[in-house]
């Protein structure tokens, strides 16, 4: 076999190692992102990001006396955090103190009780405090589907023009506020 042939052969036989190394490097990066919480195979990219809020109209969730709709949300005139929650949801309990802190810091949070009885959701709020400026309820969960919600808690940031700018599935943690939400709220204020 000629030298050139041998060189080509060497290159060819190196291919399996190259392929495996590439796959291994990929796995390593994914594992690293997973450890930092930046990768989760179960989450999805919400297609509403950068799009206007979907049309909806929801009834009131006590203690509020009036519900709200998409028009009210667009007319709110500042960044609004829309938070889907439920009293049966354990991570929501974890998130609650952060919502209170956000509200005290001047953020406007609108809550939507998801698949929850009106009394149970109201009970949760009287027990743990009410961080919500406005409250509505979506007991059938149909509006939540229009928002691309697949579990609770989920939070959306809506800017003054009614465009959704940010979305998170899963609880807001203290570092979510400092690292992500505060800069965003300032930017869209």
């Amino acid at each position: 076999m000629s030298g050139e042939n041998l060189a080509r052969r060497r290159l060819l036989l190196l291919a399996p190692l190259a392929l495996a190394s590439a796959a291994g490097a990929g796995f390593l990066v994914v594992l690293d992102r997973m450890k930092r919480g930046a990768y989760d195979p179960h989450t999805l990219a919400n297609p509403l990001l950068g799009a206007p809020v979907p049309d909806f109209s929801l009834p009131a969730q006590p203690p509020a006396t009036t519900g709200f709709d998409s028009a009210a949300l667009r007319a709110a005139g500042g960044p609004v955090l829309v938070n889907f929650f439920a009293s049966w949801c354990v991570p929501c309990e974890m998130e609650h103190p952060q919502l209170i802190a956000l509200q005290r810091g001047g953020a406007q949070i609108w809550g939507i009780a998801y698949k929850d009885s009106s009394a149970a959701a109201a009970g949760l709020l009287s027990r743990n405090g009410n961080p919500y400026a406005r409250l509505a309820r979506d007991e059938p969960g149909r509006v939540a589907i229009d928002w691309g919600v697949y579990g609770v808690p989920e939070t959306f940031l809506v800017d003054r023009t009614g465009i959704i700018r940010w979305h998170q599935a899963g609880p807001i943690m203290p570092e979510t506020i400092t690292e992500t939400l505060q800069p965003l709220l300032r930017r869209y204020a």
């Binding site: 919480g37 991570p91 698949k115 579990g151 609770v152 808690p153 599935a169 899963g170 609880p171």
Partner: peptide
């Protein structure tokens, strides 16, 4: 260190059993 796995585990509550 914050128990990150806990956050991952409870990331979302699924609607109902």
């Amino acid at each position: 260190m914050k128990p990150l796995w806990l956050a991952l585990l409870f990331a979302l509550a699924l609607a109902g059993p």
